[in-house]
Amino acid sequence: MKLNELVPQQDPVDLYLPVMSEIRDVRPLTDLETLYTVALPDGRDLGHQPGQFVEVSLFGVGEAPFSISSSPTRKGVFELGIRKVGLLTEKLAELKPGDKVGIRGPFGHGIPVEKFRGKDVLIVAGGIGLVPMRSMINYVLDRRDEFGRLIICYGSRSDKELLFTDEMESWRRDPGVDFHVTVDRGSPEWEGNTGVITTLIPGLELDLGKTVCCVCGPPVMYRFVLLALKSRGLPDKSIYMSLERRMKCGVGKCGHCQINHSYVCQDGPVYHYPDLKSLEEAL
C-alpha cells in the first residue's frame, strides 16, 4: 500500500500548544519529591487512564513528561508527583498555589484497566515508580468491587525517600489491601523490611491464575523483578510494565522515545510484557 494510503485523512491540529492550568496545591512528599494538584481551566476533567502522562511546561524553562499520579475517579483536578532532578523540575519546585503551568495531554497508552477487572491486582513499584502506580492503586480502591485483591509491593532506597507515607498507612490498615514495603538501606528508626524490592516477591500470597501485575520503577529494576515474578510462576501474559524514556513531544513526532519500532509516547508507556520481547532495547 502507498504511504499516503496508510494514514486516514484528518484535520491537522496544533499539537504543541499547552493549556494553561492552575496549580491548586503544592505538597512536599520528601526532600526531593513534591505533589502538585493541578486544575485545567473551567473545571474540565483531564480524562486520563491510570499510567498515562502529561507534558508539563514553564515558559522560558522547558517542557517534560510526567506521569499522572491521581486516579481518574477523582474528578476536577489531577495530581503530579515530581522529583527535583533537572532544570524544569527545579523551577517547578518554586511554584506556589495560583501559579500557572502549561499542560499538554494526557498522552500514551496507560494501564488497560479492563484487563485487570475481576482479577487480583499486583502492583510492583520501585522508587518514583510509585507515582504512576498510585493512580492505579486509587482507581482500584475507588472501584473496590470491580477488582479482586490488591497487592502492593513498594521498594525505596531508604525510608527517608518513601513517598505517600500517609496513604501508605491507610493501605496498611485496609484489610482489602496486601501492602508490602522494603527499603535498600534503612535508617536506625526503620523497623520494616530491608532489602531490594525483589525480596518481597517470594513471600507474596498469589493466586497465579487470577493475578495481573503492573511494574514500574527505575530501568535497572525490571529484569530482576521479572525473574522474581517468573520464579513465582506468574505467566508473562499477566504482566504489564511502564517504561521511562525521553518523551519530548508526546505525540510520536520527535523520535526521542523510540525503542526499536515502538514509540513509548504512543504505544507505551505501559506495555504488555509479551509485546516487549520483540523490543530488544526495552529492558
Binding site: G60, V61, L87, E90, K91, E94
Partner: peptide
C-alpha cells in the same frame, strides 16, 4: 543566553 538563563534562576543548557 547564559546571562538570561541565570537571571531567570535556571541552569543554562
Amino acid at each position: 543566553k547564559v546571562f538570561t538563563a541565570l537571571v531567570m534562576g535556571k541552569k543554562p543548557v
